[in-house]
Simulated assay, not measured.
Amino acid sequence: MVAYDGVGEIRGGGAHVDINGNGGEMWNFRAEGGKVYGYAMTKNFSGVDLLRLDNSQAWNENDELDGVDVVFFAKQPGGRQAVVGWYRDAKLFHKSYRKRRGQRHQGDWESLYYLCEADVENTVLLDSEARDFEVPYAPAHGKGFPGHANIWYGGDGAENSLNFLADLRKYLNSVSVVLAKKERKGKSRVPADKDLISRIEKAAVDKVWTHFEMLGYALASVEKDNRGWDLEAVKGDEILHLEVKGHIGNVVQFELTPNEYSQMKSKMMTYRVCMVRTCLGSPELSILVPKEHECGWMLESQDQAVKIALTEKIAAKAGEISDASPSIG
């Protein structure tokens, strides 16, 4: 494709494109909320095996690995494979795909899947005429090269694949330096400035407040009280504890603080996570209810159209100490 930013003309693409005329990779360089989201089809929809990249630990489904360079290549007119673009310092998910909503006004599919993401300023999509770095094709050039599957992890350590990887890294670095000096068209980074964050948060709260007020609830803001939720909604004897999460785009990107997560579990019958997408455009609200499953906690809308898995994270804080052991007295 020329742009990889939505539905468009595809040349080549394999049997799936021949039959269906489309593919999930069409959105791989669509910037949304300062990020891009990459897709590739894998056998049985199995996703990326992070053990192939880092075997120093055990990986559970949906675990994340940061700092990965992801290079996209495709068949070019004439039949050769060539690099079309890449993500630097991307985040990959272990054996899982995540889902985001397409934007219907742009002709997108209703649901789009992705298995990696990156900050938009760390991405490069080459112009069509600049896609001249050839990628050897395994069936024609021998074992160790890409071609037997849609995802290639860097070969098996054979000399030919190691030489190719060295040339590829040299190419990525040289092209990145050149492009860094140019303005990258269509890649507007969303700055994490305080004013923008405040506008997103206000728009999200306003949307939630209006929604529950129209349902007959009386609302109060408790954002500054550190209770583990932002709003309280009361109607008769019923009280709901509402935690508001606003997004600038369509993709789900939020965390629950330890306090919020603890309150969600202890007040699961009355706790609601109010997720607002596209806050600065046409805000879209999803009311999510906590549910405990065998595999952990999830958030689901009442119609089960939106399902979000929650992954627990453990953190640690570092601080330098003296050589002297603390006295015990």
Rank of each mutant, 00 (worst) to 15 (best):
E129K: 11
E129V: 01
R131F: 09
R131E: 06
R131N: 00
R131C: 07
R131T: 03
D132H: 04
D132W: 01
F133R: 08
E134H: 01
P136M: 07
P136F: 08
P136S: 09
Y137L: 08
Y137S: 03
A138T: 10
A138V: 02
A138M: 07
P139A: 01
A140H: 10
H141G: 04
H141A: 13
G142E: 06
G142H: 06
G142C: 00
G142V: 09
K143M: 08
G144T: 06
F145T: 00
P146E: 04
P146N: 00
G147M: 09
G147L: 07
H148W: 09
H148N: 15
A149E: 03
N150Y: 03
N150E: 15
I151V: 15
I151P: 01
I151A: 11
W152I: 06
W152G: 11
W152K: 10
W152V: 09
W152H: 12
Y153F: 12
Y153E: 15
Y153H: 10
Y153V: 06
G154A: 09
G154R: 04
G155E: 04
G155V: 06
G155P: 06
G155H: 08
G155K: 03
D156W: 11
G157C: 05
G157M: 06
E159M: 07
E159F: 05
S161K: 06
S161D: 15
L162G: 04
N163I: 02
N163C: 12
N163H: 11
N163Y: 06
F164A: 07
F164W: 07
F164E: 04
L165G: 07
L165K: 15
L165R: 15
A166R: 11
A166M: 09
A166W: 05
A166Q: 12
D167S: 15
D167E: 15
D167C: 10
D167N: 15
L168R: 02
L168Y: 05
L168C: 00
R169E: 10
R169Q: 10
K170W: 00
Y171M: 13
Y171R: 14
Y171A: 06
L172G: 06
L172F: 08
L172R: 08
N173F: 04
N173Q: 11
N173Y: 00
S174R: 14
S176I: 03
S176Y: 02
V177K: 12
V177Q: 13
V177N: 01
V177F: 05
V177M: 13
V178Y: 01
V178H: 00
V178F: 08
L179I: 10
L179R: 13
K181N: 13
K181H: 10
K181E: 13
K181M: 13
K181G: 12
K181L: 15
K182S: 13
E183R: 15
K185N: 12
K185V: 12
K185D: 14
K185M: 12
G186D: 00
K187Y: 10
K187D: 09
K187Q: 13
S188A: 14
S188E: 14
S188G: 14
R189F: 05
P191D: 14
P191W: 01
P191S: 14
P191T: 06
P191M: 13
A192N: 15
A192V: 01
A192D: 15
D193W: 05
D193S: 01
D193I: 02
K194H: 03
K194W: 11
D195Q: 12
D195Y: 04
L196T: 12
L196C: 02
L196V: 08
